[in-house]
């Protein structure tokens, strides 16, 4: 089996909790546990992406052991692997994302694309995709309403406020979250569904420490100088304050051409950044 490189993350939730008429608090139902439409769409998207890229999809759920049977049934629809990360959602905010990232990261599944549903019905914070992206150091494209799973750069449409849309291109490792309308999960073939009904052993169970965040992978990325705080301008009128803030009328040091070794060039660039205040001089705080 080749390494799976696309994962769908799903959350096992009570799809139709009752409501206590006296307290208006949700009451857990006995029978309607499963996965939200958005999570099911996430799995379908992962399957389509895997097909388009000639790779395999894995479905991952952070939840209690009781979720294993439902996950086995879900997994009958086609992913190469199903992994249950044993986890109690009560163990603290953000911990689901942490344990998921631990399993999705280079030490375990080593995926480079993660698809989540944008809603789990589980009254969670909705932060799992972002937490996973943070811990894996992946880009995020969240709240997608359209996605072209073809090979190459992924093009997707994101819902923005005010009925606006944003078209995003996703290149490289990323976490996507999709709305339930993006795709309908394919029906599991009868043989696979029957096997899943007979045993949930095909679901691998792993345990990780929810309080031990996975190390973020170190990656070589361009260095972007941090913003620097400047004192408020004291000029009397607004125009003068803008001029002072932007330095539009100030004398600028003209560009210089220097020749030298790469080390010397690097040293000159660093010196100039120190002059501008972007980098601290030795012994100084930025």
């Amino acid at each position: 089996m080749s390494e799976a490189s696309i994962a769908a993350c799903v959350k096992w939730v009570d799809l139709h909790p009752g409501v206590d008429p006296a307290t208006a608090l949700p009451e857990p139902s006995a029978h309607s546990w499963g996965f939200s439409e958005a999570d099911r769409a996430a799995l379908e998207v992962a399957l389509r992406l895997a097909e388009a890229r000639g790779t395999e999809a894995v479905v991952v759920c952070a939840g209690p052991l009781e979720a294993r049977r439902c996950l086995a049934e879900l997994a009958a629809s086609g992913p190469a692997r199903a992994v249950l990360v044993e986890h109690d959602h009560q163990s603290g905010p953000g911990t689901s994302g942490v344990v998921l990232a631990g399993v999705l990261g280079p030490r375990h599944l080593d995926v480079d694309l993660v698809v989540c549903g944008d809603m789990s019905n589980g009254r969670g914070s909705g932060s799992v995709p972002a937490v996973v992206a943070h811990h894996l150091g992946f880009a995020q494209a969240l709240g997608l309403i359209e996605l072209d799973p073809g090979p190459g750069t992924l093009r997707a449409v994101r819902r923005l406020d005010g009925a606006r849309r944003e078209v995003v291109s996703v290149d490289g490792p990323a976490v996507l979250s999709v709305e339930g309308s993006v795709a309908a999960l394919r029906r599991a073939p009868l043989g696979a569904a029957t096997s899943a009904a007979m045993t949930s052993e095909a679901v691998e169970v792993v345990r990780t420490d929810p309080h031990h965040a996975p190390e973020r992978p170190t990656r070589v990325v361009p260095w972007r100088p941090p913003p620097r705080a400047v004192p408020a301008p004291h000029e009397a009128d607004a125009f003068s304050r803008i001029v002072a803030l932007t330095g539009a009328m100030a004398d600028h040091s003209p560009p210089r051409s220097v020749e030298g070794t790469p080390e010397m060039a690097a040293e000159l660039i660093l010196e100039q950044l120190r002059t501008w205040g972007y980098l601290a001089r030795d012994g100084e705080q930025t």
């Binding site: 394919r186 029906r187 599991a188 073939p189 009868l190 043989g191 569904a193 029957t194």
Partner: peptide, 9 residues
């Protein structure tokens, strides 16, 4: 016959 793909039992 069932409504699943490859759905004969």
């Amino acid at each position: 016959r069932t409504d699943r793909p490859d759905g004969d039992l």
